[in-house]
Simulated scan of single mutants.
Amino acid sequence: MKRLVFILLFLVGLLVHSQTPQKISYQALVRDADQNLVINKPVGLQISILQNTIDGAVVYSESHTPVTNNGGLVTIQIGAGLSKNQDFNTITWVEGPYFIETQIDPTGGTEYSIVGVSELLSVPYALHSKSAETLVGFDGDYAKKAEVVAFTLSRIVTNSDIGNTIACTTTAELTLPENFDMPIGDVINLEAHNGAILTVKAAAGVELNYQEGGTAIFASNQKQVRFGLLRKSAANAYIISGQ
Results as ranks from 00 to 15, higher is better:
Leu8Trp: 00
Leu8Gly: 04
Leu8Gln: 01
Leu9Ser: 12
Leu9Gln: 14
Phe10Glu: 06
Leu11Trp: 02
Gly13Glu: 02
Gln19Val: 13
Gln19Trp: 10
Gln22Ser: 15
Lys23Ser: 13
Lys23Phe: 06
Ser25Gly: 15
Tyr26Val: 09
Tyr26Pro: 08
Gln27His: 08
Ala28Met: 02
Leu29Glu: 03
Asp32His: 01
Ala33Met: 07
Ala33Glu: 04
Asp34Asn: 11
Leu37Lys: 05
Val38Pro: 00
Lys41Cys: 00
Val43Asn: 02
Gly44Asp: 00
Leu45Ser: 03
Ile47Met: 04
Ile49Val: 13
Gln51Glu: 03
Thr53Pro: 03
Ile54Arg: 08
Asp55Leu: 03
Asp55Met: 07
Ala57Phe: 08
Val59Phe: 13
His64Trp: 11
His64Met: 11
Val67Ala: 06
Asn69Trp: 13
Asn70Ser: 14
Gly71Phe: 10
Gly71Val: 07
Ile76Gly: 07
Gly79Met: 10
Gly79Glu: 10
Gly81Met: 00
Lys84Met: 05
Phe88Glu: 06
Thr90Asp: 05
Ile91Ala: 01
Thr92Asp: 08
Trp93Arg: 03
Val94Met: 11
Glu101Asn: 15
Glu101Gly: 08
Gln103Cys: 14
Ile104Cys: 01
Ile104Ala: 01
Pro106Cys: 03
Pro106Trp: 01
Thr107Asn: 11
Gly109Ala: 07
Thr110His: 15
Tyr112Ala: 09
Ser113Ile: 14
Ser113Gln: 13
Val115Leu: 13
Gly116His: 12
Gly116Thr: 14
Gly116Glu: 15
Glu119Asn: 04
Glu119Gly: 04
Leu121Thr: 06
Val123Asn: 08
Val123Glu: 12
Tyr125Val: 14
Leu127Val: 12
Ser129Asn: 06
Lys130Pro: 05
Glu133Lys: 15
Glu133His: 13
Thr134Lys: 10
Thr134Met: 11
Leu135His: 12
Phe138Asn: 10
Asp139Met: 05
Tyr142Ile: 10
Ala143Trp: 12
Lys144Ala: 10
Lys145Trp: 12
Ala146Glu: 10
Glu147Phe: 14
Glu147Ile: 15
Val148Tyr: 03
Thr152Ser: 11
Leu153Ala: 15
Leu153Cys: 07
Ser154Asn: 15
Arg155Lys: 14
Arg155Gln: 13
Ile156Trp: 11
Ile156Asp: 14
Val157Leu: 08
Val157Ser: 08
Thr158Glu: 02
Asn159Ala: 15
Ser160Asn: 13
Gly163Trp: 01
Asn164Ser: 10
Ala167Ile: 05
Ala167Pro: 12
Cys168Asn: 11
Thr169Leu: 06
Thr170Pro: 10
Thr171Ala: 08
Leu174Lys: 09
Leu174Val: 10
Thr175Glu: 11
Leu176Asp: 01
Leu176His: 04
Phe180Ser: 05
Phe180His: 08
Met182Phe: 08
Ile188Ser: 09
Ala192Ser: 14
Ala192Trp: 09
Thr199Met: 10
Ala202Ile: 02
Ala203Lys: 01
Ala203Pro: 09
Gly205Asp: 11
Gly205Val: 12
Val206Gly: 06
Glu207Gln: 00
Leu208Pro: 06
Asn209Asp: 02
Asn209Ala: 05
Gln211Pro: 06
Thr215Gln: 13
Ser220Asp: 05
Val225Thr: 01
Arg226Pro: 09
Arg226Lys: 01
Arg226Leu: 03
Phe227Leu: 13
Gly228Glu: 07
Gly228Thr: 04
Arg231Ala: 03
Arg231Asp: 00
Arg231Met: 01
Lys232Arg: 13
Ala235Gly: 00
Ile240Trp: 03
Ile240Ser: 06
Gly242Lys: 02
